[in-house]
């Protein structure tokens, strides 16, 4: 009897294949939550190399060592410049609080001044140290924001051979859109390991702004880890490659490595 009912509903078009697909796709909110639930280890130490390429092909390289540690749900991260040698020792520290209503706290140590300068984290849409990722994107890594966007899951696609959910996100209001610098994002989230694999974003005027590809995702010490991020800014034709190497999740990091005094002493 039940089968006849389903066949009948299909026949009159009330249960179309499209609506069936919509029901099986997870919501954007649940996907965002899963990207946060992904294991990132308590602490990690890694080398981050940034290759900045302008539209004329000129390449500048910045090598850094970064450390990150969770203090409960609060995430603290420090990045130390290794090259160029003339700015070696420049260091950036951020406290990322789980309460979305709280701005992060950030400090920048400038060896030329030998001073640690407190910097506002309110402008999270500003570009991070001349690269094509914003401070907000650096902070999120391969997660997608839980609070800034209203998402719609529009389907599935394969990226680098992996099944991904495709989401469209629009900022929840104009203020957030202005803060982030985006009017829309399109995100491809890996359906099995819940990591962002690709993102497209549009500026507040609606122009296609950036494409971000997260590649070479491999397990390191049992944790899914990205090794390359390629970002292209379509407006400026500037590109940044982030290469991540020497990753160690088992490193022992003292709590006092994440203080502004520690920035002065270096790693």
């Amino acid at each position: 009897m039940k089968n006849y009912l389903i066949m009948g509903l299909l026949a009159i078009g009330l249960l179309s294949p499209t609506s069936s697909k919509a029901q099986t796709l997870p919501t954007g909110k649940s996907i965002a939550d899963k990207t946060y639930a992904k294991d990132e280890g308590i602490s990690v130490r890694r080398k981050l190399t940034m290759e900045l390429k302008d539209k004329r092909g000129k390449i500048r390289i910045r090598e850094t060592t970064s450390i990150r540690k969770y203090f409960g749900e609060e995430k603290r991260m420090a990045i130390y410049y290794l090259t160029p040698k003339s700015v070696k020792g420049t260091a950036f520290l951020t406290f990322d609080y789980p309460d979305a209503s709280l701005d992060d706290d950030q400090w920048l140590y400038m060896p030329a001044l030998r001073k640690t300068r407190r910097i506002s984290a309110a402008n999270r849409g500003d570009y991070f140290l001349g690269t094509d990722l914003t401070y907000e994107e650096i902070k999120l890594e391969t997660r997608i924001s839980r609070d800034d966007y209203t998402y719609k899951t529009i389907g599935t696609e394969r990226i680098d051979g992996q099944q991904c959910y495709v989401l469209e996100g629009t900022p929840i209001n104009d203020k957030i859109a202005k803060e982030l610098g985006y009017s829309k994002v399109k995100l491809w989230v890996d359906a099995s390991i819940w990591m962002l694999r690709k993102a497209d974003s549009w500026d507040v005027a609606g122009n296609h702004l950036k494409t971000t590809a997260i590649k070479e995702i491999k397990k390191v010490q049992g944790i899914w880890t990205y090794h390359l991020i390629a970002v292209k800014n379509h407006k400026t034709a500037h590109e940044t490659l982030f290469r991540i190497s020497d990753i160690d999740y088992q490193t022992s990091l003292n709590d006092d490595a994440f203080t502004k005094e520690a920035l002065v002493n270096g790693l």
Binding site: D103, D105, R117, R118, I119, S120, A121, A122, N123
Partner: peptide, 11 residues
């Protein structure tokens, strides 16, 4: 002392 208010740092 220093603190941050919005886009400004007071020190």
């Amino acid at each position: 002392f220093n603190t941050v208010l919005g886009s400004s740092t007071f020190r």
